[in-house]
Structure formats: structure tokens, C-alpha cells
């Protein structure tokens, strides 16, 4: 897996002091800075992201949390003028490196977006789209993965009789769970969720939250959210961002009951943002 991420194997990074790395963490962010042209959106943050846990990123709009999230699977590459400095270490590789094979990286670090964005294809094809590209052609295997991922995303019962209908015929909440299902189908190790339930009604929101908690046993999840209750309900650790700085990063319980920085407390209690 690791070697598949490198376009050119240099050997140097691969052998680098594995013992030094914290086994509990899946991602290690060191002094990450992100720029849009001249403007700096993220000012040198460092944090470890835990394995099989949910990390919530909170903060007011424009604080850099989504920018940070999108740098983890290099989605910022699509934005002209965006560039990142520093390191994000994943499996002993700096994923910000030029030599990283971005396509392979995104198979391992999947992403679900704020607005449900199913392809205008059938439910079935939404899931097989990426699998087929990855070279899986066998019908029986595809069927199996479709069922498995829809079950994991708690959508199977609702759609099993209409797999070949358009995904756009689903409700918003179902569409979002379909988007989660198609990400699951790729068997990533990390899932990045960018406000996945902010566009949903409360009932769909609750379903998606339940699903996210359930996914924790198989995946490491990083979620950006504007919803304080959501962060406190589902996450293990919470990071508070403000104007591109990481202000506080602690266990969720501590952040919400006894934050050590005054700004954090003010934000959580709704005094600004």
C-alpha cells in the first residue's frame, strides 16, 4: 500500500525511523501552512489524528478547518494558486510531497462533502463507478460490495428494491448516505467528512450521526462541523480553529466542559462565530 502511493520510490522516507511514530495515530501533521496565492489560510498547525477515532474540527467560517481537511486528500490541488508547506505524515510518507500519487492517495483517504453529490447515475452505478475504474469487473464481486457498503451505510433496506433507479430520486439524507456508501466501497483507511449533515433535516442528521459513530471501528474519521452538539455527541477529540490557527486540541469532553483557552470557551458557548 505504501509503495503504491509513491510515484517514484526514493527509499529514504520509507525507512525513516518507524519506531519514532506514534502507533496510536494515523496522521501526523507537522507545522502545516496552506496558502491561497499570497493569503495564508492555515498558519503552521501541528496535531496527531488518532486511529479508529473521530476527530472533530470546529471553528467559525473562514477559520481554515475545511482548507485543512481538503489538504489531507489533496483536494486543494484543484484550486489554482493553492499550496501547502510542512508535513502531513501518513504511513511514514509526507502526503504533501510532489512524488505522492494523488489518485492512489484518494483511494485510501476518502471524502464526503457538505452537499450530497451523487452522480446522476443509478444507485448501483454510484457505488461501482470507482470500483470499475479500479479494475473490478466481476459482476458477482461488484454486487457483493454494493450490498456490503449500502448495509454499512444503513441504506440497504431502503434501496435494495430499486438499485437501478436514479440516485437523484433519493431524499437528501439518503443521497448523503449513498455518498458515504460509495466512499466506504473503496475501503479507505481515513474518511474526511466536510459538514456531512449540515444540509440535512434533523432525522436524516441523526441517522448520519449514528452511522458515523458506527464507522469508527473500521475507519479513522475527521469531521468538520458547525454544529457544537454534533461535535460533542460523536467525536473523541476536538480541535478548535480560529483565523488559521489551531487554538486548542483536546479530548472532546475536556473541550466542552473545561476548555483551557478562553477563546474556545467563548466560541463553544456561542459568544461569537
Amino acid at each position: 500500500m505504501v509503495s503504491a502511493l509513491m510515484d517514484k520510490q526514493t527509499g529514504k522516507q520509507a525507512g525513516e525511523s518507524e519506531s519514532k511514530r506514534n502507533k496510536e495515530s494515523i496522521l501526523e501533521v507537522n507545522n502545516l501552512e496552506i496558502f491561497y496565492g499570497e493569503k495564508r489560510a492555515v498558519n503552521g498547525i501541528s496535531m496527531d489524528i488518532g486511529k479508529n477515532s473521530i476527530t472533530a474540527l470546529i471553528g467559525p467560517s473562514g477559520c481554515g478547518k475545511s482548507t485543512f481537511l481538503r489538504s489531507i486528500n489533496r483536494m486543494n490541488d484543484l484550486i489554482p494558486g493553492a499550496r501547502a508547506e510542512g508535513e502531513i505524515i501518513y504511513e511514514d510518507l509526507n502526503i504533501l510531497s510532489e512524488q505522492i500519487n494523488v489518485v492512489a492517495l484518494r483511494k485510501e483517504i476518502g471524502m464526503v462533502f457538505q452537499k450530497p453529490n451523487p452522480f446522476p447515475k443509478s444507485i448501483y452505478e454510484n457505488i461501482t463507478h470507482a470500483l470499475k475504474f479500479a479494475g473490478m469487473k466481476k459482476k458477482s464481486k461488484l454486487d457483493e460490495i454494493v450490498e456490503e457498503s449500502l448495509k454499512k451505510a444503513a441504506l440497504w433496506e431502503e434501496v435494495k428494491d430499486r438499485l437501478h433507479k436514479s440516485a437523484l430520486s433519493l431524499s437528501g439524507g439518503q443521497q448523503q448516505r449513498l455518498c458515504i456508501a460509495r466512499t466506504i466501497a473503496m475501503k479507505p483507511t481515513v474518511m474526511l467528512l466536510d459538514e456531512p449533515s449540515s444540509a440535512l433535516d434533523p432525522i436524516s442528521n441523526a441517522k448520519v450521526e449514528e452511522l458515523i459513530i458506527d464507522l469508527k471501528k473500521d475507519y479513522s474519521i475527521i469531521i468538520v462541523t458547525h454544529n457544537m452538539q454534533q461535535a460533542s455527541r460523536i467525536s473523541d477529540k476536538t480541535a478548535f480553529f480560529l483565523s488559521g490557527d489551531l487554538i486548542e486540541y483536546e479530548a472532546t469532553e475536556k473541550i466542552f466542559t473545561n476548555p483551557s483557552v478562553k477563546k474556545t470557551e467563548e466560541y463553544i458557548s456561542g459568544r461569537f462565530g
Binding site: M75, L105, K107, A130
Partner: peptide, 26 residues
């Protein structure tokens, strides 16, 4: 919609395959 393109790229699909299977059909 840009969303569709991002969705496809975020699933580890190459730019060309995204054009072929997502952008052109839409």
C-alpha cells in the same frame, strides 16, 4: 456542478476518467 467533479476525484479516479464518465455524460 463542481461537486460532481470533486466527488469523482475524491474517490481516487483520474482526471481523464472523470471527464469521460462524469463530466461528459452530464
Amino acid at each position: 456542478p463542481r461537486d460532481l467533479k470533486e466527488a469523482s476525484l475524491a474517490l481516487g479516479i483520474t482526471h481523464w476518467h472523470t471527464i469521460k464518465t462524469v463530466l461528459l455524460p452530464s
